[in-house]
Design a protein around this nucleic acid. Structure first.
Length: 420
RNA sequence: GUGAACGUAGCUCAAAGGCAGAGCACUGGACUGUGGCUCCAGUGGUUGGGGGUUCGAGUCCCCUCGUUCACCCCA
């Protein structure tokens, strides 16, 4: 075969689209219930938008972006994530209203040039939300609860909410300094990657899966001890509200975020069946990002859910019986019957009856088989006998019962709840 | 970017250097205008692509593309 879907991309075929649509429909329903409105932003943006927001030293910016120049030489990038575009739109359209929240949700494809793996693709879809305009810890709790409700409503069970705080611009530097000192002192105990991380982005050592490093990290300074009073208080409030809401969560000292813009609350929702890429949802606060981009002081929080990962996790134990996708399947025998059949199909569809017409030109037997495979409730047969008296034969594909009815009454028989 | 395994019919997989096969699916028949069950028969392949070794390669070697898993990183 000459052409295949590009590496790291996937077709979603009709057989799986039902689950896919459910993820989207549930997003509309759940996030709408919390007062979120949908936003749609371009799939590509100026490259600088992402390099500054995400961080020059992050892997996403350094090696994973689909960047290109257009014909006028503009530097553009296929979006690797959606927070920066939403923030850009928020500022550009001056959506800031003093004392009120900008609450939006979205779904769409994101692009990162990575080696594909279970739950990781080059084009992948995210469903996410952003709430811009409040520092309130109660908002954090509501957002986390909303994510949890969403995952519950798409039928995901066995998820675990991990929570941490990464501090803000005054207390985080103190912590990273302390961590750096520790990593330098104990450098023999760490792998090569971690030694490099000590300089570039020390908090990322907590992501290391090397067992020796993990053991060593138990002695590392813990960020909670270094948080300023405001951050400490904020985090305590978030967990307090979550407890009030009855949302299970675990504190995770080692939960750090890869993107530079995060402040204070960070969280991940993990699922055990996903393999190495076990986060189905991740998010956190980004209190400085809007200001940093020239907007008004607007503390904010958001999260994103990986749709393909959610699909993988939902897949297990979800073999629901599929609904009959057709009400009527029209089988015409001969040219005259064909004309009648086409017209009948058209009339039935106009009345909202799901109707397919058989174009195979096969025998009655062959067309009956097609009706069976198509999953129709009824077969509607038009042959010589029916042409003579202006009737059609309607056969219930479940019970095998059938009866002859006038063409004009076909619609009422096809919409009957039961029996024929 | 690094490492490992894998790539054979539409699908799931056999064939341990010697005739490319099975099950399911598909098509036809038994059953002439009646689907599902059963039985019988049939169609279907440049063994991912390219090169090499060999009398002979699906099998061994090299390159390449892709898949999977892990690392890295992340949704």
């Amino acid at each position: 075969m000459e052409f295949k879907a590009p590496r790291g991309t996937k077709d979603i075929l009709p057989a799986e689209i039902e689950v896919w649509d459910r993820l989207v429909d549930t997003a509309k329903s759940v996030f709408g219930r919390y007062g979120y409105k949908r936003i749609e932003t371009p799939v590509f943006e100026s490259t600088g938008l992402f390099t500054r927001a995400i961080g020059e030293t992050t892997d996403i910016v350094k090696k994973e972006m689909y960047t290109f120049k257009d014909k006028k030489g503009r530097e553009l990038t296929l979006r690797p994530e959606e927070t920066a575009p939403v923030v850009r739109a928020f500022i550009e359209h001056k959506m800031h209203v003093e004392g009120s929240l900008f609450k939006v949700f979205y779904w769409g494809p994101m692009f990162r040039y990575e080696r594909p793996q279970a739950g990781r693709q080059r084009q992948f879809w995210q469903i996410g939300i952003e709430a811009i305009g409040s520092p309130d810890a109660a908002l954090d709790a509501e957002v986390i609860q909303m994510a949890s409700v969403y995952l519950h409503e798409i039928g995901l069970t066995g998820v675990k909410i991990h929570l941490n705080s990464v501090g803000d611009k005054c207390c985080r530097p103190k912590y990273t300094d302390a961590l750096k000192v520790f990593l330098k002192q104990e450098s023999e105990g760490f792998c090569e990657d971690c030694r490099i991380r000590a300089d570039t982005n020390p908090m990322r050592v907590f992501d290391c899966k090397n067992r020796a490093c993990g053991a060593k990290l138990r002695e590392a300074p813990v960020i909670m001890r270094y948080l300023c009073d405001e951050c400490k208080r904020h985090y305590a409030d978030v967990t307090g509200y979550l407890d009030d809401l009855g949302i299970d969560h675990v504190h995770d000292d080692h939960l750090v975020r890869g993107l530079d813009y995060y402040t204070r609350t960070t969280f991940e929702i993990k699922h055990a069946d996903l393999g190495a890429q076990d986060a189905v949802c991740a998010g956190g606060r980004y209190d400085d990002l809007v200001k940093q981009y020239g907007g008004p002081e607007s503390p904010a929080i958001g999260f994103a859910i990986g749709m393909e990962r959610a699909m993988l996790a939902v897949r297990t134990g979800n073999d629901r019986e599929e609904e009959k996708s057709l009400d009527g399947y029209i089988i015409a025998l001969g040219d005259d019957a064909k004309r009648k059949g086409m017209l009948l199909a058209s009339n039935l569809r106009a009345k909202g009856i799901k109707t397919a017409y058989d174009f195979s030109g096969k025998s009655l037997k062959g067309q009956m088989k097609n009706a069976d495979k198509a999953g129709s409730r009824f077969a509607v047969i038009i042959g010589e006998n029916e042409l003579k008296d202006g009737s059609v034969t309607i056969r219930d594909m479940e019970t095998g019962e059938q009866r002859s009815v006038p063409v004009k009454e076909a619609d009422t028989w096809l919409t009957k709840d039961s029996g024929i």
